[in-house]
């Protein structure tokens, strides 16, 4: 449907891009096919300035307080958090697995890095996701071009810095094409230390 254009308010600090928050939650009874994924994902708001971001974000449940199988996504406005989206179809994502209890802090830090344009990879960043699961939580950052190694390495190195990850943290990269093939977001990844 049509949504009104979101712009920075008077005196607010504009962001380089507008970003849209999405929320999804899997109903355990339903298969995780593309159609049910699209039906389960809901757009919850778009922000255009630093101030609008904080207003929106401070009303959201912290991801660490979510239960069950759910995800928050923050993507550039106009990019759906789906593998098939035009901006994502040649892309992939870095995956960081977090033990329980860390998701809220890491989610905030990765968002601030993205909103503040800390990655320095041109137009490559599409968005970030925090995935709440039963045993662990998972942080992902999606970029447009999976086979651009200069970009993916720079994203990885920036993540280590902005999240202050210990040097032995395992980071995994998975192309969306591979996710489509095995119908899984987090299995069969390429490990990078």
């Amino acid at each position: 449907g049509k949504r009104k254009t979101v712009t920075p308010g008077v005196g607010e600090h504009p962001l380089q891009y507008n970003y849209t928050f999405w929320y999804s939650r899997r109903t355990p009874s339903r298969p995780a096919n593309t159609q049910s994924y699209e039906q389960n994902i809901k757009q919850i708001g778009t922000v255009a300035s630093v101030e609008q971001f904080w207003k929106f974000y401070s009303h959201l449940v912290r991801p660490g307080d979510l239960t069950g199988h759910s995800d928050f996504h923050l993507f550039k406005e106009g990019i759906k958090p789906m593998w098939e989206d035009e901006a994502n179809k040649n892309g992939g994502k870095w995956i960081i697995r977090l033990r329980k209890g860390l998701a809220s802090r890491f989610w905030e830090n990765i968002i601030l890095a993205m909103l503040g344009e800390q990655f320095m990879v041109g137009e490559e960043i599409c968005g970030v996701v925090v995935s709440i699961r039963f045993q662990e939580d998972i942080l992902s950052i999606w970029n447009k071009t999976a086979n651009d190694q200069v970009t993916t390495s720079r994203i990885r190195d920036t993540l280590r810095r902005v999240l202050n990850l210990p040097p032995n943290t395992i980071m995994e990269y998975k192309t969306h094409n591979d996710s489509l093939k095995d119908n899984s977001s987090f299995r069969n990844t390429k490990i990078s230390l």
């Binding site: 308010g9 005196g11 607010e12 600090h13 504009p14 962001l15 380089q16 630093v50 101030e51 904080w54 207003k55 401070s58 830090n109 601030l112 890095a113 909103l115 503040g116 344009e117 800390q118 902005v162």
Partner: peptide
């Protein structure tokens, strides 16, 4: 064009600015 870059501290400082109250 120029890119709008904000560091973490700048963003955190805006969290409690009068505009977000």
């Amino acid at each position: 064009g120029t890119r709008i870059i904000y560091d973490r501290k700048f963003l955190l400082d805006r969290r409690n600015s009068p505009l977000t109250q």
